[in-house]
Design a protein around this nucleic acid. Structure first.
Lengths: 125, 125
DNA sequence: ATTCGTGCAAAGACTTTGCATAAAT
DNA sequence: ATTTATGCAAAGTCTTTGCACGAAT
């Protein structure tokens, strides 16, 4: 477990405040409110350590750079919704049945990702 | 529609021969058998044009650079399987029901992606 | 006092672009 | 002859890393 620096605390606070997956640049901007000297290289290093420490979980969507979310949010199996209008990402609870029926013979499933695309509530209104 | 250059033909042949999604570097290596002078910049430019011409379709998996597949393969709705041992990607036919039940109120679905992870037949054997 | 993290700048990986040449029409 | 693609090298973006300094234990 790494040291509890002011930078790391600021990064952690950014996640708690946002309540949704964030990317490195978003994190930099948010955490600089608290620690203006914060450097992007530090963000990358801290993200990596926090993932090792099981405090953050990477959220990887097709065709995009990784975002991260608090591990507690990731502990319950969930998937993601990506709004095609505002580009925000939301957690979706629950899952579907019947994935294994898609497998060809001889293939074995050990995991899956589902991403739903569309318009979020705010963009629909 | 762009010109029918020897480079483009070689790239198209690489896809036909592979029968699975390929990334830029894989394409370069395969197509150089036919056109040794082929340059990676040309591969990128040609991929972009072939996507515009609806001959190729991008395949984007979480956390990876885009691959491409022939549009004819993409025309029927399908998803992808990623082998955790050999990293190859395979097409999966069919789909599942009940995705819309994952949506929170006010959200509207216009598309989805499913990726199944596991071991492919060759790696299982 | 020692250990580990930070900022900065440089280096890497991947992708895009400017430009003169070459190929296709 | 004209138009468009190619190869090469340079530049962009995103991410990682080396190193001297500073902060945490």
């Amino acid at each position: 477990m790494q040291r509890q620096t002011t930078q790391r605390v600021a990064i952690e606070n950014a996640f708690t405040a946002a309540g949704r997956p964030l990317g490195p640049q978003e994190i930099l901007e948010a955490a600089r409110d608290e620690v203006p000297s914060l450097n992007l290289a530090t963000v990358y290093r801290t993200l990596k350590r926090m993932v090792d420490d099981r405090i953050l979980h990477p959220v990887e969507l097709p065709g995009e750079s990784p975002r991260y979310e608090l591990q507690e949010a990731a502990d319950k199996h969930h998937h993601h919704f990506r709004c095609r209008k505002c580009d925000a990402v939301f957690d979706l609870n629950g899952c579907v049945n019947g994935l294994s029926k898609l497998l060809p013979a001889g293939f074995q499933m050990s995991g899956h990702d589902i991403v739903i695309y569309g318009d979020c509530r705010a963009c629909n209104a």
